[in-house]
C-alpha cells in the first residue's frame, strides 16, 4: 500500500468525526442563518435579514452589548493572566526546593472542572460568603453589573493564570543560564536583563499562550452561564448564541449570531498573529 493510501485510511476516522461534529454543524448553522424562524411550515429564504437584525436591527442592542462584554472580559482576563503568569513563572523558575510541589499545585486550578469552580465562586461571592467576610465588605457581587463582571474576571483569572504560567515557564527553561551570566558580568541590571534577554527569548511561548487564551476567552460560556446566567450585562456572545438558538428556538437567528461570533474570533486571531506573532508562529512546528 502506498503512503497516500495508508495516510488516507489512518486519517479517515479522525477527519470523519471532525466533519460530523464540527464542520457539518458549522456549515449547517451558516446555511440556516439565511432562513427565517417561523414556528410552523418550511422556513423561507431571507438573505442577510438575520444578520441585519443582529447588527443594526431589533437584536442590535443585545448583540453589541454582548460584543462589548466579551471583548472586555477577553482583554482584562488575558492581560491579568499574562502578568500574573509571568510572575508565577519567574518564581517557579527560580525555585529549586519544592519545585515539584509548586508545579503540581499550579495544575490544581486548571484541573478543577469549570462548572465546579463556577459553583464555588458563586458561593464565595454570595453576600454572606467568604469574599465579603475577608474584606469586610457588604457587596451583592452577583446582583449588580460591575461586581458581577469583577466576579467573573476574578474566577477566570484564578483558573487560567496558572496555565499561562506553565506555558511561559516552558519557554523560560529553554534559555541557557550562560546568557544571564554573561549579561550579569557585563553589568546588566535585573530590569535590563528582563527586557533584553528574558522577554525576547520568551516571546514565542508568550505569543502562543496569549493566542490560546484569547481564543478561549472569546468563547467564554461556562463561568458566566453558571455564575450569573448572563444577568447584569454579563451576557457573552456564546451565551447569546445558546439563548437564541436553544432557548428561544430560533435556529436561523441563532445561526447568524454564531456565524458572527466565529468570524469575530477568526478576525481577532488573524490580526493578533499578523501584528504580533508573525515571526513567532511562522516557523516549522512539527
Amino acid at each position: 500500500m502506498g503512503p497516500e493510501r495508508l495516510a488516507f485510511r489512518l486519517l479517515l476516522p479522525s477527519v470523519a468525526v471532525l466533519l460530523l461534529v464540527i464542520a457539518y454543524p458549522v456549515l449547517r448553522a451558516v446555511y440556516g442563518s439565511f432562513f427565517d424562524d417561523r414556528p410552523m411550515g418550511p422556513a423561507a429564504f431571507i438573505g442577510f435579514d438575520n444578520y441585519a437584525r443582529a447588527l443594526w436591527g431589533a437584536g442590535g442592542a443585545d448583540f453589541w452589548a454582548a460584543f462589548r462584554v466579551t471583548f472586555l472580559f477577553t482583554v482584562v482576563t488575558v492581560v491579568l493572566e499574562v502578568l500574573i503568569g509571568l510572575g508565577m513563572a519567574a518564581i517557579m523558575h527560580r525555585s529549586f526546593r519544592g519545585r515539584g510541589l509548586l508545579r503540581a499545585s499550579v495544575l490544581v486550578p486548571w484541573a478543577i472542572p469549570t462548572a465546579v469552580a463556577a459553583v464555588l465562586w458563586r458561593w464565595a461571592f454570595d453576600p454572606r460568603g467568604i469574599v465579603n467576610h475577608l474584606f469586610g465588605a457588604d457587596v451583592t457581587w452577583t446582583g449588580a453589573e460591575w461586581p458581577s463582571k469583577f466576579a467573573i474576571v476574578f474566577a477566570d483569572t484564578w483558573k487560567t493564570a496558572p496555565f499561562v504560567a506553565l506555558l511561559i515557564l516552558a519557554g523560560l527553561q529553554i534559555i541557557p543560564k550562560e546568557v544571564y551570566e554573561a549579561a550579569r558580568i557585563d553589568g546588566a541590571g535585573v530590569l535590563h536583563r528582563f527586557r533584553h534577554i528574558t522577554l525576547p527569548l520568551v516571546k514565542p511561548a508568550l505569543v502562543v499562550a496569549v493566542l490560546f487564551r484569547m481564543l478561549d476567552a472569546l468563547r467564554l460560556y461556562d463561568l458566566p452561564a453558571i455564575l450569573t446566567n448572563g444577568a447584569n450585562d454579563t451576557t457573552t456572545l456564546s451565551i447569546l448564541v445558546v439563548r437564541a438558538s436553544l432557548g428561544d428556538l430560533k435556529p436561523g437567528y441563532g445561526g447568524a449570531l454564531s456565524t458572527l461570533t466565529f468570524l469575530l474570533i477568526f478576525v481577532t486571531a488573524f490580526l493578533f498573529v499578523r501584528l504580533l506573532g508573525a515571526g513567532a508562529l511562522g516557523r516549522d512546528r512539527t
Binding site: 458549522v26 448553522a29 460560556y221 454564531s258 474570533i265
Partner: peptide, 8 residues
C-alpha cells in the same frame, strides 16, 4: 466556538 455547533 462550541456554541457554533451546539444547535445544529
Amino acid at each position: 466556538p462550541g456554541v457554533a455547533i451546539l444547535s445544529p
